[in-house]
Design a protein around this nucleic acid. Structure first.
Length: 463
DNA sequence: TTAACATACCCGGTAGGGTT
DNA sequence: AACCCTACCGGGTATGTTAA
């Protein structure tokens, strides 16, 4: 502890009695780990992707389908050995999830335990020519989830937070597991700006992070902390640059008892809000652009000069194009990307012109309310892969009310002016704790913030 | 006698070097 | 990945010492 001060920022030791995390009201804890078998890195990725796909297709459907090649690509399964991937899927069917729903309210904890298969049923449909070298290897995966899996996992709070792009960047299943756990409580923001996970005995965390029943391994905390916790925390911090993560350690006497994790956006420190460093997490989009193959210098410029939403859409398009194996590979990815941005801008412009005359009376209050309770918040974190539906509720509304125009106008203002406006706005809502929290959490892109910021802008710019 | 301070040692932790 | 070993560290505690 003497020399490596840098590492210390990751772990915060907390005395058992006066823990800041203790003040948090307990939330429903849902955690899950296989009771039989292990979740490997690949099966975790696959599972998340299958969930996300199911979410896109609709919860009510019984069967979902995905071409196995697409699945492989999205999970960065680089090997050509599709058989191995299929074996992974098979293994997932025999993997049991054990659910412990813990209610920790009013000091007592009541456990409800349930146990269910990770993947309900899997069919591998179609196949290559039997005469081919890899005959019999199926091309499309049809799969089902158990009702209870759907109930628990196919809800926006869970699936939407797992950044499918990010998950491929973790090299260890421990990190991915930790990420999944922490991210799950992302909305559980305390007044101190941190989002807290549940507080669990460290052995529970061990089971969660190792992805299986691990009562016989890492019996000593010191090895667990060094070889699992610290490594995972380190990698998490390296990969997810837009958030910071900490671990809280609770002891009874001298013995490590429970652990709790917390996260918060790094943007928090600079609530001064440099608007040019745009209002969404650029870490993710930055990484995506890197992945696509753009140069660092270009990326900075692109992010500086363009609406982040446009960049994101263009990135999605480019990613989709790169995944296409039926077309010739792109000669110049950068050129394609720039072109994609242009297309997106054109689309937006078109939509705006179409709707311009519609911009009706000011309905600020109503809308703010609708958004506050609305569940269909579009999460800026989730890369909209492939065919995204552009017309979500809030986007529709935004077009109708001419918000984009206002935002556009705002973006064209000189930086000082924008900063001043942001400052004014933040001041004007500083007594609105919920809104402030929302700003801390997701910047200005969240619908809730948008719904009050844009109309506010409208009023303030127009006079 | 006792509060205040000093010291020695134990214990549970970490770091960094391993091996299997 | 799982685990072991050794060196090391600091807090807690028991014990010793000192001064009021």
């Amino acid at each position: 502890m003497s020399k490596k001060q840098s590492e210390k920022s990751v772990v915060v030791a907390v005395k058992a009695n006066n823990a800041p995390g203790e003040l948090r009201k307990a939330v429903d804890a849902i955690y899950v780990y296989p009771h039989q078998g292990r979740l490997t890195l690949m099966s975790r990725r696959a599972f998340n992707l299958l969930l996300a796909r199911a979410m896109e297709d609709g919860v009510e459907k019984e069967w979902y389908e995905i071409p196995i090649s697409e699945l492989a690509k999205d999970m960065r399964f680089d090997s050509k050995d599709m058989k191995h991937l299929e074996d992974t899927l098979d293994a997932m069917q025999t993997t049991l999830l054990k659910w412990d729903v813990i209610d920790t309210q009013s000091g007592k904890s009541v456990r409800v335990r349930d146990s269910v298969q990770l993947l309900g049923a899997v069919q591998l449909i179609g196949g290559y020519d039997p005469a081919g070298p890899r005959s019999g290897v199926a091309r499309t995966v049809r799969y089902q989830f158990d009702k209870r899996v759907k109930q628990r996992l196919l809800v926006p709070e869970v699936y939407a937070r797992i950044n499918l792009q990010l998950q491929t960047e973790f090299s260890s299943s421990h990190t991915l597991a930790l990420y999944e756990q922490v991210i799950r409580y992302r909305s559980n923001t305390s007044t101190d700006g941190w989002a807290y996970t549940v507080k669990l005995p460290w052995r529970e965390w061990r089971n969660l992070l190792l992805g299986g029943d691990s009562t016989n391994v890492y019996e000593q905390y010191k090895y667990f902390s060094r070889d699992v916790l610290n490594k995972a925390l380190r990698e998490l911090g390296q990969v997810v640059t837009e958030f910071e993560f900490e671990m809280l350690v609770f002891k009874t006497g001298r013995v490590i008892d429970k652990l709790q994790f917390r996260m918060r956006p790094k943007a928090q420190q600079s609530l001064g809000l440099k608007v040019s460093q745009p209002l969404i997490d650029t870490g993710t989009i930055h990484n995506r652009l890197l992945k696509i193959g753009l140069k660092e210098a270009d990326i900075s410029k692109i992010l500086d000069d363009n609406d982040p939403e446009v960049v994101k859409d263009a990135a999605s398009q480019t990613e989709a194009r790169l995944r296409r194996s039926d077309l010739n590979p792109l000669g110049n990815v950068t050129a394609y990307f720039v072109d994609a941005m242009k297309r997106v801008r054109d689309q937006i412009k078109e939509a705006r012109e179409k709707n311009q005359k519609l911009s009706g009376p000011d309905q600020r209050g109503k809308d703010a309310k609708a958004d506050a309770s609305g569940v269909d918040i579009l999460d800026p974190e989730v890369p909209q892969k492939g065919r995204r539906r552009p017309d979500t509720l809030s986007e529709k509304r935004a077009v109708k009310e001419g918000w984009e125009e206002i935002e556009d106008h705002f973006r064209q203002l000189p930086k000082e002016e924008r900063d001043a406006l942001v400052e004014q706005f933040v001041e004007s809502i500083s007594d609105n704790a919920a809104l402030m929290r929302e700003i801390n959490r997701r910047g200005f892109e969240g619908p809730l913030v948008r719904a009050s910021f844009v109309p506010w802008l409208k009023r303030n710019i127009e006079n």
